[in-house]
Design a protein around this nucleic acid. Structure first.
Length: 566
RNA sequence: UGGGGCGUCGUCAAGCGGCUAAGACACAGGAUUUUGAUUCCUGCAUUCGGAGGUUCGAAUCCUCCCGCCCCAGCCA
């Protein structure tokens, strides 16, 4: 344990909850819930909410967090999504134990609450068409008008509602509405619909119900039924809070949870709405919901992000009520931080350039010992083969180097990582194209392992791989999906897809990797030294390994090289 | 122009009337380095959207103004 008091980043929600606990507001209990609608895949924004809700449950003694599917709209929801959501929440490292719930578990109770509301004269069956309902609602600055059905008798409402439940009417014929105030400046209070007719099979309740409760009715009551103390949601539901409270106030409910809103997460260079992510998938801008460029949990996972890195990220971005745009650099920092510590190191060449070491014995091969992590000997080491012909990175050789270029060039000596010092003697070019096809070098046998006995220094160390022993591999280099920091921020009539980065994916099929890496399991996360963190993709086959670049290493050279240019 | 929110460093974000306005990312220098990585130092808001006011004292309280976000689904 640390000696210093943990500097738990405080936020306004924890401040409120701590006060409530201190005041014994809910008998000192803290119960939260994560309530996704199973109509799509979870994204990094949901991760913020998951970490918040489950995190609070962990932080307070006896705290709990339920996983509840808000499955009140069977026309949009699917079992497939429920399974994917459960997988993602678990993968992030959270556990709802035996508290997996569904709003549909409460359909009977919800129906009974609706009947109670009718009996109290607080709800009525309205038979206005959807179009008329809209017309009667008024506008933002003008009050609405009472529905002509607003004063139906309780008995008539009870009868009609029961017949709605019995499936006697077509969709749109009637709707159950809360009787509140058609002149309220808050649109949500203008007699909102709380039940609608939908002759749709529900994936859990089948055809038992031809009517389904609306979010505003189902959510607060589900919270109450589950004994939730703090109902945390995003800012756009703030205007719904009066309705949330109104419903619970009318009914004889187990408890009255407190709704608290926070700002949703926006990440630079990506989009976050389910609708937009769906467009990216459906119009094939990406390969699917788990495309490594997607901000979905599935995509981020396939990209090679770890659960811990995402939890740390969510902790770092904080919690507030102001709209904000978090720099994607913070996400990248979080994954580098985790992988720097944990990822084994390997050697791989993305764009191979052949190097022939002229003074190295023709048919000799030797095994060199290379630690799996230079800063952590406990991770062990592996042997890597070395021979006369090797590959180095094309970027690591320049025939005419600029001032600050430390890498290989004619006459210059560099170190091969964990191998030898080599000095470039000359190059061989393709006669027609002039392209360098081979770099010739000599090596110093005394520098085996990478140390020079005479203490002479070398400016840099290159990664390499033995040509005869290397495995071929496909490497997918990912970059940000959009060129614009905020793709949503359209300039007159532009569409967010206009800002898609055409270079967000570069596929390299002629990569050379150290042998042994081919046997790694899908999901294996490691560092290609000097290049970045990568992970093996599930698309890999026995003789065709595929690697995804999770994130590059920080690279001072690209900055220097960038400055030299203009 | 109805209602509800929000404006503190390039980006997040603490701060809740009283020491020099936390911290992180980013950025810029320097040291160490067999990854131009990591690590390690150092620097980075005399000022809190603006203007007035209250107070011995204001980012924190009051007034006005400016800007941004959300709401007119039988979606969540």
């Amino acid at each position: 344990m640390n000696t210093e008091a943990p500097s738990t980043p405080s936020n306004f929600i924890k401040t409120i909850i701590s006060e409530d606990v201190q005041n014994n507001k809910y008998n000192g209990k803290v119960a939260t819930r994560f309530p996704p609608e199973p109509n799509g895949y979870l994204h990094i924004g949901h991760a913020k909410s998951i970490c918040l809700n489950f995190g609070i449950a962990q932080e307070y003694k006896g705290g709990t967090c339920n996983l509840r599917f808000d499955d009140t709209n069977p026309s949009k929801e699917e079992i497939e999504y429920m399974e994917a959501i459960k997988f993602d929440v678990r993968w992030l490292g959270f556990d709802w134990q035996d508290r997996l719930y569904h709003a549909s578990d409460y359909f009977d109770q919800l129906y009974a609450f609706a009947v109670e509301l009718i009996k109290k004269g607080k709800a009525y069956v309205c038979s206005l068409s959807p179009e008329d309902t809209r017309a009667y609602r008024g506008t933002l600055q003008e009050p609405g008008k009472d529905s002509p059905y607003r004063n139906r008798s309780i008995d008539e409402n009870l009868d009609l509602f029961e017949r709605m439940k019995n499936g006697e009417y077509p969709e749109g014929a009637h709707v159950l509405r809360a009787k509140i105030d058609m002149a309220s400046p808050n649109m949500n209070m203008r007699d909102p619909a709380i039940y609608r007719i939908k002759h749709v099979t529900h994936n859990r309740t089948g055809d038992a119900w031809p009517i389904y409760p609306m979010y505003d009715f189902a959510h607060c009551l589900s919270d109450s039924i589950e004994g939730i103390t703090h109902s945390l949601c995003t800012l756009e539901f703030e205007d719904h809070r009066p309705l949330y409270d109104w419903i619970l106030d009318q009914l004889d409910v187990p408890c009255h949870p407190q709704q608290i809103e926070f700002a949703r997460l926006n990440l630079s260079y990506t989009v976050m709405s389910k609708r937009k992510l769906q467009v990216l998938v459906e119009q094939n801008f990406v390969s699917g919901w788990d495309d490594p460029r997607m901000p979905t949990i599935a995509g981020i996972r396939r990209r090679g992000y770890t659960p811990l890195s995402i939890r740390n990220f969510c902790e770092r971005i904080g919690m507030a009520r102001r709209d904000s745009m978090v720099d994607v650099a913070l996400l990248e920092f979080s994954i580098r931080e985790d992988l720097n510590e944990k990822a084994p190191r390997h050697l791989g060449v993305l764009r191979p350039l052949k190097v022939v070491i002229d003074n190295y014995p023709e048919n000799q091969t030797e095994e060199l010992n290379a630690p799996l992590h230079p800063n952590n000997p406990d991770m062990g080491s592996r042997a890597i083969p070395f021979s006369r012909e090797i590959y180095i990175e094309k970027d690591d050789f320049l025939e005419e180097p600029p001032k600050k270029f430390f890498r290989l060039s004619p006459g210059r000596e560099v170190r091969l990582r964990y191998a030898y010092f080599i000095t470039c003697t000359h190059v061989v070019k393709d006669k027609t194209t002039g392209e360098i096809v081979e770099v010739h070098c000599t090596y110093d046998p005394a520098t085996r392992g990478g140390d020079s006995p005479d203490g002479r220094k070398v400016k840099t160390t290159l990664h390499w791989v033995s040509a005869a022993h290397a495995m071929n591999a496909e490497v997918r280099l990912y970059d940000r999906l959009f060129n614009k920091e905020n793709p949503d921020e359209g300039t007159n009539g532009s569409h967010f897809t206009d800002f898609i980065n055409p270079d967000s994916l570069e596929v390299l099929i002629d990569c050379k990797i150290e042998p042994g890496l081919a046997d790694a399991a899908p999901g294996y996360s490691f560092q290609f030294e000097r290049l970045g963190y990568f992970c093996k993709d599930a698309d890999s086959s026995k003789d065709h390994p595929v690697f995804n670049r999770t994130v590059t290493l920080k690279d001072a050279w690209v900055k220097i090289a960038g400055k030299e240019k203009p």
